[in-house]
Amino acid sequence: MTTLPSQTDKKLGLVIDLDTCVGCHACVVSCKGWNTENYGAPLADVDAYVADPVGTFLNRVHSYEVPPDDGPAALVHFPKSCLHCEDAPCVTVCPTGASYKRVEDGIVLVNESDCIGCGLCAWACPYGARELDGVEKVMKKCTLCVDRIYNENLPEEDRVPACVRTCPAGARHFGDFADPDSNVSKLTAERGGMDLMPEQGTKPVNKYLPPRPKDEAIDILAPLVEPVAEKPEGLLAWLDKTLEKI
């Protein structure tokens, strides 16, 4: 049924730390790997070895320049995947009931055997979180690695989304936003977690932590590498004088 649940027991989602992300795209690769080999249709690459390859990804990393008033621009890497919105517009537009939001944990999923590939859910999503697979012709989206997080065949430390497990910078955090004492709720409160495009009214579950302000004296090595010979002495002084006279 493509009506949204009025409330979900848990609100599972991600916190993405824009201050820590180094833009290595490891989350993109691990996401593609896990979700190609496990739940649902594999994420296809079409014409992967020719001039115009096109592939399906559930997670993509944009990079933005933040121009300051003065000084050098800051570079912010910006991973983007499904935000598992509380008021998910992609779910209600679905004509077949293939798109749904789970009552137990709030994960937004696609039942691929019911998907007719009309693409309307991708149109309804402000974040570009849904992509129609080029080979299977069904809608693909982040599942929050639903086949990892409850999977008792995996060691406990692996029961988090693949992107979170793989992030070498610790910029991705997984948890339950319905629990005010969870790691993600605390991080969001401490660091001022942001909603993306809040004016769309989607109430995203995933939060983004803004980059911390940069220190003024950022170059701690500067005092150690000051020029040591402003005024030449001895032979250099004589050479300097003589060459200027010529």
Binding site: L18, Y64, M194, L196, M197, E199, Y208, P210, P211
Partner: peptide, 8 residues
């Protein structure tokens, strides 16, 4: 707004 309202 797309990247988090105004924070950046």
């Amino acid at each position: 707004t797309a990247t988090g309202r105004g924070a950046m």
